[in-house]
Computed example of a mutant assay.
Amino acid sequence: MALHTLLGANGTIATELVPVLLANKENIRLVSRNPKAVAGAETMAADVLNYQQVLKAVNGSDIVYLLVGLEYNIHVWRKSWPVIMRNVIEACKACKAKLVFFDNAYMYGRVDGKITEETPFKPISKKGALRAEIDQMLLDEMNAGRIKAAIAKAVDFYGPRCIDKSATGLMVFERMKNGKTAQWLGNANVPRSFNYTPDAAKALYMLATSEKAYGQTWHLPAVSPALTGKQFVDLAAKYMKAKNNVQVVPKWLLSVSGLFNRFMKEMNEMMCQNDYPFEFDSSKFQKAFAFTPTSYEQAIKETAEWFLDNG
């Protein structure tokens, strides 16, 4: 059996990926500063900003998943992400491990039409420019044949067990559960793609265990056509047994909130993904792996059931 090592093992995607790996009887190593024990998996404490610790964590691995999530702060990102990416690349090269990087879509900027893997990087935000930089760092190594890696991109996500790192988790499902009006960032009447976390985890494993996936960028499965914010809230209300009213949070309010709340300030520069249509095309992955994403109806139903059962 191969050894699958998860860097950033306490995060949302790692939480969904571990059961997939266990179901496939893989050997698992969970790595973070303070990894949580999981039956059937090895744990190892490591700081991804320290190369020697990363090297020790990667040693003996067949496949490494870079799933690290940092504080949502551009200053932290600028200081830490280039170091993390270089450490992980060099450790994987030294240990001859394959790398799967769980990435976002910030580097694309505002796009008219569907976003595909061929869409050029045109970031319009500081976070987008930083993500483009670390992507290029890995792409250069991949294209030079120095590392066997795959980049798996996702947009904002939702799903069971998904609260603190999910805008819809906090602003839709959690608020409905507490009897409050759902909120939506930006324009609730334009289509907005999301990834369902159980689908994303299954797709990551499929990429990691397929030789044809390496050397490429992949968009993780997202349902097409995307729902508008209002349509998403309507479905959530149906299964949360709540009112389908939605309170739109405009950009000016985020700007004001940002004076007092760092997270809101950081969110403000990403509003282009919420003010305009943001349609993420995952047809490349779906065709290559004969994968059908979970429908919005079913995924929102499963998410609502989890929130109602875990209040």
Rank of each mutant, 00 (worst) to 15 (best):
V38N: 09
V38S: 09
V38L: 10
V38I: 15
V38P: 05
A39S: 12
A39Y: 02
A39L: 04
G40P: 01
G40D: 03
A41S: 07
A41R: 03
A41E: 02
E42K: 09
E42M: 12
E42N: 10
T43C: 06
T43R: 07
T43G: 06
T43N: 07
M44I: 08
M44A: 12
M44Q: 14
A45F: 07
A45D: 07
A45G: 11
A45Q: 11
A45W: 05
A46R: 01
A46T: 06
A46Q: 02
A46I: 04
A46V: 04
A46E: 06
D47R: 01
D47V: 03
V48G: 00
V48W: 03
L49R: 14
L49F: 13
N50W: 11
N50F: 11
N50V: 15
N50P: 08
N50A: 13
Y51N: 11
Q52Y: 14
Q52K: 11
Q53M: 07
Q53L: 05
Q53Y: 09
Q53I: 05
V54L: 11
V54M: 10
V54G: 08
L55S: 15
L55K: 14
K56E: 14
A57F: 10
A57R: 05
V58E: 01
N59V: 10
N59D: 15
N59S: 15
G60I: 01
G60Y: 05
S61E: 12
S61P: 06
S61F: 05
S61G: 14
S61N: 14
D62Y: 08
D62C: 05
D62H: 13
D62Q: 12
D62W: 07
D62P: 03
D62I: 00
I63Q: 04
I63V: 13
I63F: 12
I63A: 03
V64R: 08
Y65A: 10
L66M: 10
L66A: 11
L67E: 09
L67Q: 14
V68F: 05
V68H: 04
G69Q: 04
G69Y: 04
L70C: 07
L70K: 09
L70Q: 12
E71K: 14
E71Y: 08
E71A: 12
E71H: 09
Y72E: 00
Y72I: 01
N73S: 04
N73K: 05
N73D: 13
I74K: 13
H75K: 15
H75L: 12
V76F: 01
V76D: 00
